[in-house]
């Protein structure tokens, strides 16, 4: 693993599978009487959120606390961030306070990268969503959810997880950092990805993503092993990308008729927050195929795995020749 997690594309297949395997072990913690591990005792994790996000922040907070880290939440509202402090000054402040990891969400694509590579801070930087760019931990938790359900032998313990599985990502791909991170990670894990969206909501340069694209949801669904619905991000839309909500729902929304086209084992996913009636109908979201609630549970386990793998060990690579029997 690198010291930072900025893009799902930085993860090698080995790294990604290590995160998934680690998350699988950590997930069982939820069944124990004491849901806490001492791995990050004395470490400080700062949640630096320039954009509102309740679920991602809470998920990171729960993950850090279950690993015994100290958590500082730093939200834009009501802090010096709303008084015009720059990213650099914020970073220097956090560095002076001794943050070991900064979980950053920012409306500007590339902000976490800048934080990690300008020497403002020595902390590990974890991208919790930057603009319309990436959201790697969401991709990891989505992959983890698929892996638990779709990998041969269950829970993917046999490895090889998602090879050849077909994943459809449907909706507002243009504004979705989740779609980009998912496409990168799922390709790394060997899955085949099809992006389904109206032409106006597919990003320029999507040809370079190593994925297939389609404008026709009905033709993609029968082959899919999992279908991930994306929220239509109207707050990022400055233009008319589709005529009406009703027309969008009719062509790209997942309703019970479309769910009937899916294979028996296919999963219905959504990164949340959902707009029921827009991209997904209520009966589909609440159906037995929907793993949307499980995605939230898995999010904590995956974020624990990421924090553990980035922070728990020494940052210096130790020699490959270990001292004899030290682990006994």
């Amino acid at each position: 693993m690198n010291r930072h997690l900025l893009s799902a594309g930085d993860l090698t297949r080995d790294d990604a599978e290590l995160v998934l395997r680690t998350a699988e072990e950590l997930r069982s913690l939820a069944d124990r009487p004491i849901k806490k591990l001492p791995a990050l005792r004395g470490r400080t994790v700062v949640n630096l959120f320039f954009e509102d996000s309740t679920r991602t922040r809470i998920s990171f907070e729960a993950a850090a606390k279950r690993l015994s880290a100290d958590v500082i939440n730093f939200a834009a509202k009501g802090s010096s961030l709303s008084k015009g402090e720059s990213l650099k000054d914020t970073a220097l402040t956090l560095e002076a306070m001794g943050a070991d990891a900064i979980v950053v969400r920012h409306s500007a694509s590339g902000a976490p990268h800048r934080l990690a590579h300008t020497g403002w801070t020595r902390s590990s930087v974890i991208n919790a969503g930057d603009g319309t760019h990436e959201h790697p931990t969401q991709a990891l938790l989505d992959a983890f959810t698929m892996w638990r359900h779709l990998a041969p032998g269950g829970a993917g313990k046999s490895g090889g997880g998602l090879d050849g599985r077909r994943i459809a990502v449907v909706g507002d791909v243009l504004h979705s950092r989740v779609a980009r991170s998912n496409a990168l990670l799922l390709r790394t894990l060997g899955a085949e990805v099809t992006l389904v969206a109206p032409p106006t909501l597919l990003p320029v340069g999507v040809e370079g993503w190593d994925v297939e694209t389609s404008y026709d949801l009905d033709s993609v669904l029968p082959k899919a092993d999992a279908v991930m619905m994306l929220r239509v991000q109207r707050e990022r839309m400055s233009d008319a990308y589709f005529p009406t909500v009703r027309e969008y729902s009719r062509r790209y929304g997942l309703d019970s008729r479309r769910m009937g086209l899916l294979q028996e084992h296919a999963l219905v996913m959504h990164p949340g927050p959902m707009v029921r009636g827009m991209e997904i109908t209520a009966d589909v979201a609440d159906s037995s195929r929907s793993v949307i609630v499980e995605q939230v549970t898995n999010g904590v386990a995956v974020r624990m795995a990421v924090l553990y793998l980035l922070l728990a060990g020494s940052s210096e690579p130790t020699l490959t020749t270990s001292d004899p029997g030290a682990s006994e």
């Binding site: 395997r21 072990e25 069982s28 124990r32 001492p38 791995a39 980035l310 060990g313 690579p317 130790t318």
Partner: peptide
């Protein structure tokens, strides 16, 4: 019972993969 997270040398080595705990 996996003891990885409870090791006293956790911080001195690169992070290790967790192993199964089955109670």
């Amino acid at each position: 019972l996996d003891v990885t997270m409870y090791r006293d040398d956790l911080r001195m080595r690169p992070p290790r993969a967790l192993l199964p705990t089955e109670i």
